[in-house]
Design a protein around this nucleic acid. Structure first.
Lengths: 131, 131
DNA sequence: TTTGAATTACGAAAGTCTTCGTATTTACTC
DNA sequence: GAGTAAATACGAAGACTTTCGTAATTCAAA
């Protein structure tokens, strides 16, 4: 019998729902469903199932309000962003963040503004380290 | 005409194999299998299946050499790195690359050296744009 | 040319992910 | 309390992913 190592990563739909919860702060099944973009058709019970799974996996918790559950993220978006980047860096960039940034900044679609913001971030971090 | 949704992204195991092929340049089932890290147990036929699937999905092609197939990437690693970053940026960073870099550079584990490399990359790109 | 080890071809089992239906429960209204 | 609309609980179908076994094929050595 082989058992798969429990992944700390969200699946596609789980991430879709976490994004809505992060945007809302917290919300019921109905809230999240209403938040989904036009054209994303999903049965109410499907949404409820996804939130149930997120709770089972400890990505969210819930409290009861009247007859509804209000779901609240346990996992912060920042935290998950970092986790995802590390995973991607490890799996596809030989654990070399500079290579990752290289691909990013060489993308022609990257705006001058974004590029400037990026440099500001790096400079600020370098300054803080030395200061 | 309705087309089957084809994800342009590699699955977990597909990526694992593409990484070996990218490192090797090209290789047979045996080559890739031998390249896998210690402790990664995988039946020969499983490896063959994965390469077959990669070929079906047009991520690799193959030529026959003697009785063996030699598999060659059709998808370049650079290309796939960019594709993955765009996907992650869209799904988790509100399509804001600066936020992505912010998480990266605020990671405490990031070395001073990596940080310097990143700034050099950004500076070079900014210089080229203005020049 | 027969034989056998290595390889390929195919499909199926096992696991995971996504979606939804049915049954039950809940709170509110009459 | 009975009726009702909304919500929850549970399970299961269908699609996709990962792994592997069996059968057929291939090349080369005896």
């Amino acid at each position: 019998m082989r058992q798969k190592k429990k992944s700390e990563l969200l699946t596609e739909v789980e991430l879709e729902f976490m994004n809505e919860l992060w945007a809302l702060g917290e919300g019921t099944v109905r809230d999240v469903l209403d938040q989904l973009p036009e054209g994303r058709e999903l049965a109410y019970t499907s949404a409820a199932t996804i939130l149930r799974i997120l709770e089972q996996k400890n990505f969210v918790t819930s409290r009861k309000e009247g007859k509804r559950h209000v779901f609240v993220p346990l996992l912060a978006k920042d935290t998950y962003q970092i986790r995802s980047l590390k995973d991607l860096s490890m799996k596809l960039f030989d654990d070399t963040p500079a290579t990752l940034v290289a691909r990013l900044v060489n993308d022609d679609e990257l705006t001058e503004e974004a590029l400037g913001q990026i440099r500001a971030l790096v400079d600020r971090r370098l300054k803080n380290d030395s200061g």
